[in-house]
Simulated assay, not measured.
Amino acid sequence: MVPDKHFLITLAHTKMPFGKYKDRYLIDLPEYYVVWYHNKGFPKGKLGDMLKQVYELKLNGLEDLIRNIQRKYPK
């Protein structure tokens, strides 16, 4: 899956809506937590798609890509 520009901008500004890490940007979730979701199964829908992308970004060390988007396209 190759995300489009709008998806990445939305991802950069999306916060976790529930749980222990509520209100934390998805890209700032601890790696172990995202890996746990990868093993358990991501939620359905847009949040799940975003968490899958965060997993791939973290797996490849590309978190700064999202942080740069946060700076370039402030909410």
Results as ranks from 00 to 15, higher is better:
residue 1 M to V: 14
residue 31 E to Y: 10
residue 61 G to L: 04
residue 40 K to H: 13
residue 10 T to S: 14
residue 4 D to Q: 04
residue 56 E to V: 11
residue 70 Q to E: 11
residue 17 P to R: 05
residue 41 G to W: 09
residue 32 Y to N: 10
residue 14 T to S: 14
residue 26 L to N: 04
residue 57 L to H: 07
residue 5 K to R: 14
residue 52 K to G: 02
residue 63 E to F: 00
residue 7 F to D: 06
residue 24 R to L: 11
residue 22 K to H: 06
residue 31 E to L: 00
residue 4 D to R: 01
residue 35 V to F: 03
residue 60 N to V: 01
residue 3 P to L: 06
residue 48 G to E: 08
residue 40 K to F: 13
residue 44 K to V: 08
residue 27 I to K: 03
residue 73 Y to K: 01
residue 36 W to R: 14
residue 20 K to E: 15
residue 42 F to T: 00
residue 48 G to W: 05
residue 11 L to M: 05
residue 51 L to Q: 04
residue 40 K to E: 13
residue 13 H to I: 03
residue 45 G to W: 08
residue 14 T to D: 11
residue 15 K to P: 01
residue 26 L to M: 03
residue 68 N to E: 14
residue 14 T to H: 08
residue 22 K to S: 06
residue 67 R to Q: 09
residue 30 P to Y: 09
residue 21 Y to P: 03
residue 22 K to F: 02
residue 58 K to I: 05
residue 34 V to G: 07
residue 75 K to S: 13
residue 26 L to G: 04
residue 75 K to L: 14
residue 12 A to P: 08
residue 64 D to C: 00
residue 70 Q to R: 15
residue 54 V to K: 01
residue 44 K to Q: 14
residue 72 K to C: 04
residue 5 K to I: 12
residue 4 D to S: 07
residue 5 K to N: 10
residue 34 V to F: 10
residue 5 K to T: 12
residue 31 E to K: 11
residue 20 K to G: 02
residue 21 Y to T: 02
residue 14 T to L: 09
residue 39 N to H: 11
residue 18 F to K: 12
residue 30 P to F: 10
residue 59 L to T: 10
residue 61 G to K: 01
residue 32 Y to V: 06
residue 60 N to L: 10
residue 20 K to M: 12
residue 62 L to C: 08
residue 20 K to V: 12
residue 35 V to W: 09
residue 37 Y to K: 11
residue 75 K to N: 13
residue 57 L to G: 04
residue 20 K to I: 11
residue 74 P to I: 02
residue 17 P to W: 11
residue 52 K to C: 06
residue 33 Y to H: 12
residue 44 K to M: 10
residue 31 E to Q: 11
residue 60 N to W: 07
residue 23 D to E: 12
residue 13 H to M: 03
residue 46 K to H: 10
residue 43 P to G: 05
residue 72 K to E: 15
residue 35 V to S: 01
